[in-house]
Design a binder for these strands. Structure first.
Lengths: 111, 111
DNA sequence: TTGACAGGTAGGTTTTTTCCTACCTAAAGT
DNA sequence: ACTTTAGGTAGGAAAAAACCTACCTGTCAA
């Protein structure tokens, strides 16, 4: 897998979250760290495919891997999601002021 | 034909945000509605490609289109981002409790 | 030390994305 | 009516994503 090195950390986070399987993995890990096997059981997909999804999440630093014997526990590291939240902040202002369409915008700027 | 109909609204939002150009379009529209031309000027890309990005944002209901004569103003509609925010909420608890790794998890669950 | 098990990597196929140029339609101006 | 302008649509190329099976390595247990 080529895996563009030119991607910024934020790009990697957004791209990682674009896939529903990967979001489901994160949701699953909210209940605590899990080895790959146990994660894979929840999906109708071959294990190596789950491994690939985990790699994407790892590259986005949304999860960490901790080796314990022959198991690897994956755990959520939600720090990158804070960036996502701060990216979201300017839009929050928008929906609080109910400023959602051209009409409202024009009303605000051409009184 | 184009655009899987099987995609949920949330899927469409996450997928729309996966592309940096589309996020830049949204950021641009934070300053107010813009016609396509003016949006396209900000990007090093042919206008029809920008149109395609706008279509993706429109399908995700992240923007609205308002026709004024031969212009079409695109405006942010941040409502879908609220869903994103509520998807984010469970992770917020995580980083507030500094519960970010296997070690911390084990400390919490095997005292 | 040998076998079984956990899980990553290689390589390949199919589908999706992202871009392009060429073209088409609708509204405006002359 | 004719031309220009705004902007969408068609079709296609190139790249990336998402799967798969086969294979390899490292750890544990007999």
């Amino acid at each position: 897998m080529p895996h563009r090195v030119k991607m910024s950390p934020a790009d990697r986070v957004f791209a990682a979250l674009a896939n529903p399987t990967r979001r489901d993995v994160l949701d699953l890990l909210l209940d605590g760290p899990r080895p790959v096997q146990e994660i894979a059981e929840h999906f109708d997909m071959a294990r190596p495919s789950v491994s690939e999804h985990l790699k994407v999440l790892l590259d986005a630093e949304l999860v960490t891997e901790t080796r314990q014997g022959r198991h690897r526990y994956y755990a959520v590291t939600p720090d990158p999601l804070r960036e996502l939240q701060s990216w979201l902040a300017p839009y929050e202002r928008f929906w609080r002021s109910k400023l959602t369409g051209l009409r409202t915008y024009l009303e605000e700027h051409n009184p």
